[in-house]
Simulated assay, not measured.
Amino acid sequence: MEFLVTMTTRVPEGTPEAEVDGVRAREAANSRRLAEQGRLLRLWRPPLGPGEWRTLGLFAAPDAERLEEVLAAMPLRIWRSDDVTPLTAHPNDPGPSAAGAADARPEFLVAVAPSAPAAGPSRAPDDALAAEAVRARELAGTGHLVRLWQTPGQGRALGLWRARDSAELRTVLDALPMARWLSFEATPLSRHPNDPGPAES
């Protein structure tokens, strides 16, 4: 099972810089071990404000209990809080092999939720669902769609996408067959120094 973990770190004021550096070095070494064990799949940084220290991580674990064991053993946990989102398979997910392909385009995490149904023929959603599966395969083939998961909540999903920039991503999302029935919230991602993902080409 896969999990998205939002990790927020707050170092206590007055902590010596040498102590912070030591914990970060142990965290980097631990991240390498977790990646070798197949527990840590990806690490990203979302946009951060001044003084913020936040990381998004994609982890694999048999269940939430085992994931907590992994997170609790990470060195930065002494200063960190974690918000865990369980991810389940989406029928249109290209699969982990797509995520392993090196690609220099920026990555985006896109949260998808149902919006108010648009007026139209009653068959439109069913037809659009079928067309969406075809389009997802096409976008996976071009490297735009990397991964797709279902998240808690009726009709909610989370996708890892690649695009030249946010404008191209918006164009791709707006052209999806189901776009009129969905709302999208995109978070630009930058690569974390400890990310075990594929090397950029």
Rank of each mutant, 00 (worst) to 15 (best):
E36A: 02
G38Y: 02
L40S: 01
L41Y: 00
R42I: 01
R42Q: 00
R42F: 05
R45F: 15
R45I: 15
P47W: 06
P47N: 05
P47G: 04
L48F: 06
G49Q: 15
P50L: 10
G51V: 12
W53A: 13
L56Y: 14
L56V: 05
G57S: 07
L58I: 07
L58A: 04
L58N: 00
L58C: 05
F59L: 02
A64E: 13
A64P: 09
A64S: 14
L67G: 13
E69K: 15
L71Q: 05
A72N: 13
A72Y: 04
M74Q: 14
L76G: 06
D82H: 15
V84Q: 02
T88P: 09
A89I: 06
P91I: 12
D93G: 01
D93M: 03
P94K: 01
A101L: 12
A102H: 12
A102C: 13
A104T: 11
E107G: 08
L109N: 01
V110L: 11
A111S: 03
A113M: 08
A113H: 08
P117F: 00
A118I: 00
A118N: 01
G120H: 00
P121N: 05
R123L: 13
R123H: 14
R123A: 15
D126N: 14
D126C: 10
L129T: 08
A130C: 08
A130E: 15
A130D: 15
A131G: 09
E132K: 10
A133N: 14
R135G: 03
R137V: 06
R137C: 02
L139K: 00
A140C: 03
T142Y: 14
R147W: 02
W149D: 00
P152A: 02
P152M: 07
G153A: 03
Q154I: 10
Q154G: 07
R156C: 08
A157I: 11
L160T: 10
L160A: 12
W161D: 12
W161P: 02
W161G: 09
W161E: 13
A163G: 14
A163K: 03
A163L: 12
D165A: 05
E168G: 00
T171P: 09
V172I: 11
L173R: 02
